[in-house]
Simulated assay, not measured.
Amino acid sequence: MDQQQQQSSPIEMALQEYKEGIGTFTKKMPSIAKKYNAFTEACFEEGKLTKKEKQMVALGISIFSQDEYCIIYHTKGCLDEGCSEDEILEIVGVTAAFGGGAAMSQAVTLVQEAISELSQSQDNQLQ
């Protein structure tokens, strides 16, 4: 898959839309954005939980709340922190135990699509 096709995929487009939205918000509300970013960065720093574990928690919450941008973002975060597909699918199972069919529907569509596309993207970057 060439770079132009990757950028036009729904997953890559969603990540780009989020990035652009944050950029616009930051320009319009710099003080709030700076404080929000500092807070979230602190939350995801290594502590008693690893960065990987924190991404896994965030993915579960994202699926449960059906926040599509965060589902994609934290699926990517999980992959970036070394999660395997099996680990991500276990997160899905636990989330579906609490969120039922709504959580499962996100998993069998968006999470699996994100894993597939983002894994291919990572493989292409390594080559």
Rank of each mutant, 00 (worst) to 15 (best):
L15G: 03
D123F: 05
S65G: 12
Q120A: 14
G101C: 13
Y73H: 15
E90S: 02
T50R: 07
E68R: 15
A103L: 02
A42T: 06
L59T: 02
L15H: 05
A103P: 02
K48E: 13
I61L: 15
S8C: 04
F39R: 08
Q5K: 12
Q55V: 02
C83L: 05
I61M: 15
I91A: 01
F64H: 15
K51T: 12
P10Q: 10
S65F: 15
H74W: 07
Q6R: 13
I63C: 04
A102N: 11
A58G: 14
Y18A: 14
K19L: 10
A38T: 10
D80A: 13
E45V: 07
N124M: 11
A96E: 01
S62T: 13
L126G: 08
K19F: 11
M13W: 10
E17T: 11
E46P: 03
A42Q: 10
I63G: 02
T109K: 09
L118Y: 03
G60K: 04
I11H: 05
K51A: 10
Q112S: 12
M13Y: 12
C70G: 10
F98P: 01
T26I: 02
S116E: 13
Q3R: 11
G23M: 01
Q55W: 03
F39Q: 11
Y69C: 08
T75H: 06
Q106K: 13
I115P: 00
E53C: 05
F98A: 10
Q120W: 00
L79R: 03
G101P: 07
L118V: 03
D67W: 11
P10I: 07
Q122H: 11
I22P: 01
N37T: 12
K52Q: 12
Q3C: 02
E113Q: 12
D123P: 00
V111A: 00
F98N: 06
A42C: 04
A14G: 04
E17R: 14
Q55F: 08
T26A: 09
L15Q: 06
A102E: 09
K48T: 13
G21R: 12
E12Q: 14
V92W: 01
I61Q: 14
G100W: 02
A107P: 00
F39N: 11
F64W: 14
D86V: 09
C70I: 10
G101W: 13
F44H: 12
A14D: 06
L110N: 00
E53G: 04
Q66V: 12
F64R: 14
S116P: 03
T75A: 07
P30Y: 06
M1I: 13
K35L: 13
T95Y: 00
Q125F: 07
G99A: 03
G100K: 04
E45W: 04
G77L: 08
T24L: 12
G99N: 05
S9W: 05
E46L: 07
A114R: 01
K48S: 14
N37G: 08
M13G: 06
I63D: 03
V94I: 15
K28W: 10
E81N: 14
Q5N: 09
G82D: 10
H74P: 08
A102L: 13
T95V: 02
V92N: 01
P30Q: 05
M29R: 09
Q125K: 15
I22R: 12
G47H: 06
A42V: 03
L49H: 04
Q127V: 11
I11Y: 05
G60W: 03
I91S: 00
G100H: 02
E46I: 06
Y73V: 11
I71L: 07
E85T: 06
K34W: 07
Q106R: 11
V108C: 08
T50G: 05
E85A: 06
